[in-house]
């Protein structure tokens, strides 16, 4: 009997210890990732870090319409905010192939269309990191048991850091948790509008992160993309960005994009894949009209786009209701995300 108890205790001890060790490793990995995320030495000209296009103050998006690359040139898409990333089926605005967060980092690092960071090949990159303001040897050692720098390690660490960016402490979350004071009456009225079938927002912005597609039977549909009728030019959408069509080569996908989370919207303006809308009021006008007319000076009525989702039908909204809806969307902002010191630039 004593033997069994002893053995049991021993097993429990080993289990607890390994769990604790695993947790520590995960923490060390994320800490390494945080340094890399904030390090401009990952770019060709040592002038651009992940954190320049993904800034904590803007919920890890940037405040630009289109973000700027290492050569100071604008790209073609609006930077995405980074939080609660585990809730997405695929990463970036319209690419179902990007299902792996570590792998995704290779795009900003090495892409030449558009150029973003233009990092050199790994041997040069590793050399460059030894000149960084941060001392990487102990960081890699803590995360991996030795100081070797490899691409797999870099991307694994970046992913681990990004997975720590959790954001579930908005007034809306507090309200759901039982604090009825957390939302104003205006926001509560806006919530009812948002949840209503009349507006239909929930069909594409479902779930706790407002980024799931829900079918008519209430089931979650995975990896779904939508054309929301922003444009209808000669080529469907402007040729600079055709969304999912570029990956799938299926014409019905022209202009389809992923519905992003609606959390932290007040921090992530401008909106849409091309940053074409500066204000939430403009976004709501777009949905209310059932599509946009001559958006960004692109001639054509997006409302008539044949690829447009049948869920974007338009609705009438009073000025009061519009303000209520905006108040609700604003209540989804979690200021803790932009104040958490663990998410900010590490000291030298």
């Amino acid at each position: 009997m004593r033997l069994v108890v002893c053995l049991g205790l021993l097993i429990l001890c080993i289990w607890g210890w390994s769990k604790w060790q695993g947790g520590k490793e995960q923490q060390a990995l994320a800490e390494l990732g945080r340094h890399l995320f904030y390090d401009k030495r990952l770019s060709a000209n040592n002038n651009l870090a992940c954190s320049d296009c993904h800034q904590q103050a803007y919920a890890f998006a940037d405040s630009r319409r289109l973000s700027f690359n290492t050569h100071g040139k604008a790209g073609r898409r609006n930077s995405l905010a980074l939080f609660n990333l585990a809730s997405y089926d695929s990463f970036t605005w319209a690419n179902p192939l990007q299902t792996d967060l570590s792998f995704q980092a290779l795009i900003p690092l090495f892409s030449d269309d558009p150029v973003e960071m233009a990092a050199p090949e790994i041997d040069l990159l590793a050399q460059n990191l030894t000149l960084s303001q941060y001392d990487y040897a102990p960081l890699f050692d803590a995360a991996f048991g030795d100081a070797e720098i490899s691409l797999t390690r870099i991307t694994a660490a970046l992913a681990a850091f990004q997975m720590t960016l959790q954001s579930y402490n908005s007034p809306y979350d507090q309200y759901l948790a039982g604090n009825k004071q957390a939302l104003s009456n205006e926001a509560i009225a806006g919530m009812a509008l948002f949840e209503s079938e009349r507006l239909g927002c929930r069909r594409c912005h479902g779930g706790i992160n407002f980024n799931q597609t829900i079918d008519a039977q209430g089931r979650v549909q995975r990896n779904t993309f939508h054309n929301t009728g922003l444009y209808y030019s000669d080529t469907g959408y402007p040729e600079s960005d055709l969304g999912l069509y570029e990956v799938s080569f299926a014409e019905a996908d022209n202009g389809k994009f992923r519905a992003p989370s609606l959390r932290n919207l007040t921090l992530t303006a401008p909106y849409m894949h091309d940053g074409s809308m500066a204000y939430l009021a403009q976004v709501i006008d777009h949905y209310s009209r059932g599509g946009s007319l001559n958006l960004q000076g692109v001639q054509g009525d997006g409302k008539l786009n044949p690829n447009k989702s049948e869920l974007i039908v338009g609705f009438a909204l009073t000025e009061l209701e519009k303000n209520q809806l905006i108040a609700f969307l604003a209540s989804l902002t979690d200021y803790e995300l932009i104040q958490t010191p663990d998410f900010s630039a590490p000291k030298k």
């Binding site: 990007q98 290779l106 090495f110 797999t152 991307t155």
Partner: peptide, 18 residues
Amino acid sequence: QLAKAPLDISQLQWHWTV
């Protein structure tokens, strides 16, 4: 990231389309 030469060159990998 695990590819052997000559497939280990980041510049020639097409990450967006894997």
